[in-house]
Structures are given as C-alpha cells and as structure tokens.
C-alpha cells in the first residue's frame, strides 16, 4: 500500500475510490474515440457499461489498465495515476484483473500453468503456493478436474471461466470484463454469467462491458450507457431499464431487448 501512495502523483489516495477518470479524451486524427469521460467508481462498486458497438466502451475499459493510451485527461486507479511511467503501469496492471471477449488463454500452457504464470513471475510466489492458489480459484470456477489440459481442449465457456480464475490468481482489487460472453453460445453464457454473479457477491470492484441486460439488472450498482465516445447516461439499473432519461438510451434498449 505504501508503495502505491509513493507512485501516486495526485495527492492522497482516496480509500473509497477504486477508479477515477477525469476529462478523458482519445482521438485518432479527427476521429474521437472518447470525449470528455468523467467517472468515479467506488470500491466494491459493480458497473455495467453498455451501448452500441464502436461507442468507446471497450476503449474506456482498456484505458483503466492502459492497454490503450489517451491524448488528454487523467486516469487514477487505486490512488495511482497512470502516466507514461512503465513502473506505474505495471503497478496498476498487477492490481487490475482483466477478462477478454476471446478469452486469450495462453494456448501453449495448460490450464494450471495459465493460472500460475503471473503469480510465479510477477508476484514471485513459490510454484507450489501458486498452484495451491490456482486450484482454489479453479475449484471456484468449477474447472478442478481439467487443470492439466491445454485450453484448446476446453469449451468456450470453460475457457472463459479459466480466464476469470487466471485473473483472480493475482488477487486483484478491480476486475475488468470486456464483453466476456459475447463470443459464447447461450448455454455457455449462463455458466460464465453465474460465475460472475458469484464473484460480484464477494464484493470485488467490477467494471463489465456487456449487453447482458439480465446480468446488469441483477448485479450492477450503476449502468452506464455510452455512444459516440461519450457517456450518455449513468443510472441505477432499475431506473435505467424502466425509465431511461435519454432518447438514445431508449432507442438502444428497444433494439437490444427485441
């Protein structure tokens, strides 16, 4: 913790704020990907970001662990302001888990090795300890008997659950989910969403880019609607679905619920 405050350039870290995004702009030439995004995520808060594709949701998510850079604005994660400084970027990434649309498991490593790689090489954990840790998470995502298989032998839903376990093995404070179920068949969606619901019950901070409105209703503290690189609407799930404030939100919901 004290290391984190060393790296923070922005005053004292606020203990109750997990992610703070201030005036974030990103553009390529004339094309704006993100326009003036302001967002404060409290610790333990669960946020679902939805909106039409190309609206900047994934880009915003990927700014939080700096897989994307930006032209203007600030992103502060757990009190560490992300800058060009590689040390800060690594500090944040070690603290933020990420789950991708296409799982991105390492195909040359077994399920267990996928999960122990970062604990061993980033956290410098002894191998046995890392394996024990990985097993507890693999049991939680219900893959305990497939740990010595290679990812290609697993179904999509199983792969995504392994990806969740892999991220959890770093004991992150914040989890980012970038469309975790949109590459999956309906029945596999359910097993992944169930895992995410369980995770949400543990009180970890979650930012989820997803069109799973059922999940948003059940789990989210706030739903964010993004379009055209802007945050159009931020609302509690009940209000968001039942009486959306903006015309664009209404249109989007109508399309997606049909």
């Amino acid at each position: 913790m004290q290391q984190r405050s060393d790296h923070s350039g922005a005053g004292a870290p606020q203990a109750d704020v997990a992610v703070e995004v201030v005036g974030l702009h990103k553009w390529y030439g004339d094309f704006y990907v993100l326009r003036d995004i302001n967002l404060k995520v409290a610790r333990g808060e669960r946020i679902v970001i939805c909106g039409p594709s190309g609206g900047g949701k994934s880009t915003l998510l990927r700014c939080i662990n700096r897989l994307e850079d930006w032209q203007r604005g600030r992103v502060i994660v757990d009190g560490v302001e992300l800058t060009e400084d590689p040390k800060r970027i690594l500090t944040v990434r070690r603290d933020v888990g990420m789950v991708f649309q296409h799982f991105n498991l390492f195909p040359h490593l077994t399920v267990l090795e996928n999960c122990t790689l970062a604990p061993i090489w980033v956290r410098h954990m002894p191998k046995r300890e890392a394996e024990a840790l990985a097993m507890t998470y693999l049991v939680r995502v219900k893959i305990p008997d497939q740990v010595h298989k290679y990812p290609a032998r697993l179904s999509g839903g199983q792969q995504q659950r392994v990806a969740i376990a892999r991220a959890l093995c770093m004991n992150p404070n914040i989890m980012l989910f970038d469309e975790p179920t949109s590459a999956l068949d309906p029945e596999m969606k359910k097993e992944v969403l169930d895992t995410m619901v369980e995770l949400a019950a543990d009180g970890i901070t979650m930012l989820v880019v997803s069109h799973e409105m059922g999940f948003a209703r059940q789990v989210a503290d706030r739903v964010i609607f993004m379009d055209d690189g802007q945050v159009v609407e931020v609302n509690e799930p009940k209000n968001f679905f039942d009486q959306p404030q903006h015309e664009r939100t209404r249109m989007f919901l109508k399309q997606i619920l049909n």
């Binding site: 690594l90 070690r94 990420m98 790689l117």
Partner: peptide, 21 residues
C-alpha cells in the same frame, strides 16, 4: 494481439511477456 494484451494485463514486463508467452 490478444496474447500480448492478456500478458500485459497480467502485469508481465516486456521481456517476461516475450519469453514466457
């Protein structure tokens, strides 16, 4: 690209990412 991103998201340094993944 997803392999690079997954490795970076886990906090691996450049050389570890290259060497291990």
């Amino acid at each position: 690209r997803g392999q690079y991103e997954a490795a970076r998201a886990l906090g691996l340094t450049y050389w570890r990412m290259m060497g291990l993944v």
